[in-house]
């Protein structure tokens, strides 16, 4: 998720299938050690419940339907917020990358807003929207907007001008030039933005749900804390980790599909 990842030279995708399992060895070992430590009493269960207890708590919540409902609510908030913020960011990125006028008009303003940490707006957002759905969506959308905007803009501005000239020489119309040259050229950078945005999306949602919500995973964790249900708290955290991993995997998959031409994604 760092900038290093976007350096296209040595990305370790296209790994052989066996490596798909290798990455799960470390989490598995950690869980096993954790379980043993809990059973022999090395870690008091008041501090950290055993993995088996967490799994049990998850099973109970699953049976009561509470778990699925909360995951669904969080997932829905995350995706809608991401879609709204992402598409607005993408639209501004396109406009400012393609039009000098638009860039002059809005870029400075956007850069100024960017420097305000969006979570600092939580008090204001609660005043505006209460603890309504729109509050969470607004915060997620705002958080997601900037990485997508900045990376789309950067991607479009750094498309090889020689390729654009080539397109013009060969008689491409503006639309064709965008479709065949500019957009594909900007896509790797847009994906970097998407992966940053996914991280920010979860972060924002957790914080927002913890502070101001009446449903969702963050709310579930806060409720559990009030009743001292530490196993449910740990369960929520683990689910966040899994969902984050899921989102990242999905974006990788999409990346591999659309960037098949990129040397970093070619199977050798």
């Amino acid at each position: 998720m760092s900038l290093i990842d976007s350096i296209p030279l040595r990305r370790s995708f296209g790994l052989p299938r066996a490596d798909g399992l290798i990455q799960w060895i470390v989490p598995l070992v950690i869980i096993v050690i954790w379980q043993i430590a809990s059973v022999i009493g090395l870690v008091p269960t008041r501090v950290l419940p055993a993995p088996s207890d967490v799994a049990l708590a998850g099973w109970k919540l699953l049976l009561s339907g509470e778990l699925v409902r909360n995951i669904w609510v969080s997932f829905w908030r995350a995706s809608i917020g991401f879609l709204i913020g992402g598409s607005i960011g993408f639209a501004f990125g396109l406009a400012n990358g393609l039009s000098q006028l638009s860039a002059k008009l809005t870029d400075t303003t956007l850069q100024m807003v960017r420097n305000v940490p969006h979570l600092a707006l939580i008090p204001l957002v609660i005043l505006w929207f209460g603890i309504d759905e729109s509050a969470k969506l607004f915060l997620v959308a705002l958080g997601v907007f900037f990485p997508i905007y900045l990376n789309t803009l950067h991607g479009i501005r750094t498309v090889d001008p020689q390729l654009i000239e080539m397109g013009r020489i060969y008689g491409m119309s503006d639309g064709e030039l965008f479709r065949r040259v500019i957009f594909p050229g900007a896509l790797p950078s847009i994906f970097v933005g998407i992966r940053f945005a996914l991280g920010i999306m979860w972060l924002t949602l957790i914080v927002a749900e913890t502070i101001a919500a009446s449903s969702g995973l963050g709310y579930m964790a806060m409720q559990a804390r009030e009743f001292m249900l530490i196993d449910v708290v740990v369960l929520s955290i683990l689910i966040y980790a899994l969902l984050g991993k899921l989102a990242d995997t999905a974006s990788h998959l999409l990346e591999r599909l659309t960037l098949a031409w990129h040397p970093a994604f070619q199977k050798r």
Binding site: Q162, M166, G171, R180, P184, W261
Partner: peptide, 30 residues
Amino acid sequence: RPEDIRVMFQEPRLLPWARVLSNVEVGLGR
């Protein structure tokens, strides 16, 4: 016509995201 005059540069200027055949098709202009 524009298609009658073509230039070739020192750099090939191929579209990296298009297969070889589509790159050649770009040359057909309209």
